[in-house]
Design a protein around this nucleic acid. Sequence first.
DNA 1: CGCCGGTTTGAAGAATTTCAAAGGGAGTGG
DNA 2: CCACTCCCTTTGAAATTCTTCAAACCGGCG
Lengths: 252, 252
Amino acid sequence: MSSKLADLSPLARKLGAEAPLTEAQVAAILALPATVRQVDAGQDIVREGDMPSQACLLLDGLAARFKIAADGARQIHSFHISGDIPDLQSLQLARMDHSVSALRPSTLALLPHYGLKDLIRAHPELGYLLWRETLIEGSIFREWMSNIGRRQALERVAHVLCELAVRFDVLGLLYGGVLPVRIPQVDIGDAQGLSVVHVNRVMKQLKAQRLVRMKGPLIQILDFKALADVGDFDPAYLHLHTLPEICTQRAA
Amino acid sequence: MSSKLADLSPLARKLGAEAPLTEAQVAAILALPATVRQVDAGQDIVREGDMPSQACLLLDGLAARFKIAADGARQIHSFHISGDIPDLQSLQLARMDHSVSALRPSTLALLPHYGLKDLIRAHPELGYLLWRETLIEGSIFREWMSNIGRRQALERVAHVLCELAVRFDVLGLLYGGVLPVRIPQVDIGDAQGLSVVHVNRVMKQLKAQRLVRMKGPLIQILDFKALADVGDFDPAYLHLHTLPEICTQRAA
DNA sequence: CGCCGGTTTGAAGAATTTCAAAGGGAGTGG
DNA sequence: CCACTCCCTTTGAAATTCTTCAAACCGGCG
């Protein structure tokens, strides 16, 4: 399923977060050639080894980048939500060194490379901003490395929940601390180098400590500050211009 | 100790690895304003929280990016050798989200941001190439995440040794499989989320299997292919244009 | 109603850490 | 040139965290 009517405003919003874009810049972004596509949960978007001629902007849903190790274990490198371009690097690195797939049903805008290249040529400043986004991703990778390599399971899970909460809050999608998309515990495990079983036990602890609870299939963060404390979470690595509400408020 | 006579050719070499640079581009790189500085082993180069006005190009030695977790544990995010600019991101992200320090005595060229910015403005193509380098770094971060999160200690250590061997070989600094710089086991551990003790036990195994041995204080790789096999190492993530010798030859 | 994906639980086992201490070896200073 | 010292490496034993295996449970949906 695909169409030509893609609303690329999530991208414009993201690039304009640091400093307002000019009207011409916004117009140029919104006019990018794009194709909308729906994908199911579990469906691959790009695979390791592919040489894509387009990048995918996530409009809605949840996607992840990941790699499968020799023994079949999956390592998720990052979660992606509205406004993210998980495979933007394909613009420069021809061959994909990892895969991207949808963790939940998602909506994508496929952006042909030529359109992005033209955009950058015409508006070098936007090229800078795209570069900047990839640098922030790099910062998140590093933080995850610290998480996985040097923190205990409880801290890791708390940390990643904090990150997701902040990122959703930036988009204005966090109401009452509820992460607005279902995130299976296997995926949290694959992201933090843990088994599902252990993620589950850790979630149990976080629930017992009244830091989080389930709201149907969704996770609700009850006490962000305490959770951030447990998870050694400091949002500096997200390089946000202004911190969202949840970072500044007290327990719910 | 510092001077104005910096030989920036390692940077030109690196940026020209994918496709030859024009003479003008090379000249512009070599003419960048720069200050040379020597640092001792263990000395910090940039600290988390700093807002640098220059980036550091490593000319010689060994440096690492890292972060200290709440309990004091250090996670090394990457190793850096000649030609690398570990804090290039500071050009875009004002506040350092991690630290950089020298693991061994090293020589740096400090490159003021304004010089780099002028360079990019004058030669947008070089800006692209710098962006590309940061993307490759990101790829390495992801691979390390997979390593730390989903591989066992033996595999992790084998993997990181392979990576170092390849990267040194690309620079023409690998003779007979000997990594040309001393790398303390603590640092390998901090890089791969392991204790020194365990790194040591794992090295013992690798030595017993005749995959590596010590050449004085230096590590010598005896059988790259077998080591790569143990470490589930595939150099694709380094995005090299041409693979160095060690990737293609058989056991030493 | 019964299936299905995902969650939860228990028990046993494995990998790795921690603690504590001894053992090199490479470079320095006498 | 030798001895000393400072790092760094190496080793053993006990403790922990997390994984694996196996099975039960749960809630929503066709």
